[in-house]
Nucleic acid binder design. Structure first.
Lengths: 152, 152
DNA sequence: CGCGCTCCTGACCTAGGCAGTCAGGAAAGT
DNA sequence: ACTTTCCTGACTGCCTAGGTCAGGAGCGCG
């Protein structure tokens, strides 16, 4: 139930690319500087993003990275899944494949709901939303509620 | 973004206790059998649940475990937090303490929303709900939507 | 009291993941 | 050719996950 450094970095790098827009490729080093991410680690992450088709890259002078699709067609969920794999697995298994015995029978439904609620947020926000600061209502509603900010 | 075996086990043991009700203490061994959890591991988990005041225990013949509070006053979130600590930390820090630079500025709001949406599910379901199978609408609504069951 | 039952606790273990670093190779541009 | 930048695998140190083992401490009962 925690967000890894890798996922956090990946989203930050991706939104940085979204913010730059179509002004040619961005060097890894610039992304690393802008978001204070260890360069070598970031390069591994960008490679994974490339492998899952979120990012493209070119080498050499004037090389760098850019988004493979328009920023409003890439959700946070896409980026997180690219580096962390499926969201909300329990015991490394997707919730729909788990069966429980006895009185825990309905626990599966809870995990399904957990995953669905995560998806509703992560799939509802695009890199474009994030870069512009215009958050969709699914985020805005939660953020407006003071209790969401309380530690617990 | 995954649910650990420990959390899964803890909830299953707790709901088993909820299902038994007030019929005296339940032995660890019976919980382990009922939910197919390794006994020795389960005992560690039950100890943690005891330390956070969710469960009580007595030793000796006729000893065992029982819920410290009524089952409808214990949420899944309580149980998960007892064994996993705070829900939805990013990089081991609570989202409200994180600050982002540059174009990732609004990312904090996303993590806040993620945590809030997790809470809305996990705090909305009690052990009594789970044991009875009468799920609250926050779960029921998600579960009713076929897309929630799709792998991705 | 003594004895068995059950929880309580710490120590230990192994495999694997997390968060990187290092070194070198391969394409692109000039 | 030569520099620049991405690409890739190997490696590392530390920590967590998921357990197991051995013994101790409290409880009830005859």
């Amino acid at each position: 139930m925690r967000v890894s450094a890798k996922a956090d970095y990946a989203v930050r790098a991706a939104v940085e690319l979204a913010a730059v827009g179509d002004d040619g490729p961005v060097k890894g080093e610039r992304l690393a500087d802008a978001q204070e991410i260890p360069l070598q680690f970031l390069e591994h992450i960008l490679l994974e993003l490339k492998h899952s088709g979120i990012v493209r890259a070119r080498r050499g002078a004037k090389g760098g990275y850019w988004l493979a699709r328009p920023a409003d067609e890439v959700s946070i969920a896409d980026v997180v899944r690219a580096v962390e794999g499926p969201i909300a697995n329990v015991q490394s298994q997707p919730p729909e494949t788990i069966e429980y015995r006895g009185s825990a029978e309905h626990l599966q439904e809870v995990w399904i709901a957990v995953r669905a609620s995560l998806r509703s947020v992560l799939e509802g926000v695009t890199l474009a939303d994030l870069a512009s600061g215009n958050m969709p209502s699914v985020v805005g509603d939660y953020v407006a509620e003071p209790d969401s900010w309380a530690a617990r």
